Amino acid sequence: MKVIVCLFALIAIALARPEEKYTDRYDNIDLDEILGNKRILDNYFKCIMDQGKCSPDGTELKSHLQEALENECAKCTDAQKNGTEKVIGHLINKEPELWNQLTAKFDPESKFRVKYEDRLKTLSN
C-alpha cells in the first residue's frame, strides 16, 4: 500500500511541475539584424567559441547550446525554436566556415550536423 501511495505522490509532483524551459528573456532579439551585420554576428560567434567577450544574451546562449543541439531544442520556447532554425539555416547556407567551426566544437562526431543540414540546407533568410 505504501508503494502505491508513493507512486501517486510522484505522479502528482510530476504533473504539478511545469515543463522546464530556457528563459524567454531574450526571445525578442532581432535575429535579422544580427545575421545581417557581420560585425555583430562575429561577436556572438567569438563568444560561443570562447574567443571573445560575451554579452548577457550571448552567455545565456552559450550555456545551453550543446544541450539544445543534442535534444533538438526540447527546452526552447517556440520563438527560440524558430530562431534556432533561422540561425542554423543562415550559417549552413551563407556562413559555411562558421558552421564548420561551430560543429567541430559542439558536434565533433557529426551526430547532429547531418540532421540539421538535411533539414535546413535550403532555408533562406
Rank of each mutant, 00 (worst) to 15 (best):
K2D: 13
V3D: 10
V3N: 08
V5Y: 08
V5W: 03
L7C: 14
F8L: 15
A9R: 07
L10S: 08
I13F: 11
A14T: 14
A14S: 15
A16V: 04
R17K: 08
E19D: 08
E19M: 14
Y22H: 10
T23K: 02
T23D: 15
D24P: 09
D24F: 03
Y26R: 07
Y26H: 10
Y26D: 13
D27S: 11
D27F: 02
I29L: 12
D30R: 07
L31S: 01
L31G: 04
D32G: 05
E33I: 04
I34G: 00
G36T: 04
N37R: 02
K38N: 03
K38V: 07
R39C: 00
R39Q: 00
I40W: 02
L41S: 02
D42Y: 10
N43C: 00
N43Y: 01
Y44F: 10
Y44E: 06
Y44H: 03
F45W: 05
K46Y: 07
C47V: 05
I48R: 02
I48D: 02
M49V: 04
D50L: 03
D50R: 14
D50N: 15
D50C: 05
G52D: 09
G52P: 09
C54Q: 09
D57S: 15
T59P: 00
L61F: 13
K62A: 15
S63D: 09
H64A: 13
E67G: 05
E67W: 11
E67R: 15
A68C: 02
L69S: 05
L69D: 07
L69W: 13
L69N: 09
E72M: 13
E72F: 14
C73E: 13
T77N: 15
N82H: 08
N82P: 09
G83P: 11
T84W: 02
T84I: 05
T84C: 11
E85K: 11
E85R: 10
K86E: 06
K86G: 04
K86F: 06
V87Q: 01
V87H: 00
V87G: 03
V87D: 01
G89R: 03
G89N: 02
G89T: 06
G89S: 08
L91K: 00
I92P: 00
I92A: 01
I92T: 00
N93G: 05
K94T: 10
E95Q: 05
P96C: 15
P96Q: 09
E97F: 06
L98D: 11
L98F: 15
W99A: 08
N100M: 00
Q101E: 12
L102A: 02
L102V: 06
A104N: 09
D107M: 04
D107G: 04
S110C: 10
S110N: 13
S110W: 04
K111I: 08
R113Y: 02
R113Q: 11
R113I: 07
K115F: 12
K115M: 14
Y116G: 01
L120P: 06
S124W: 12
S124M: 13
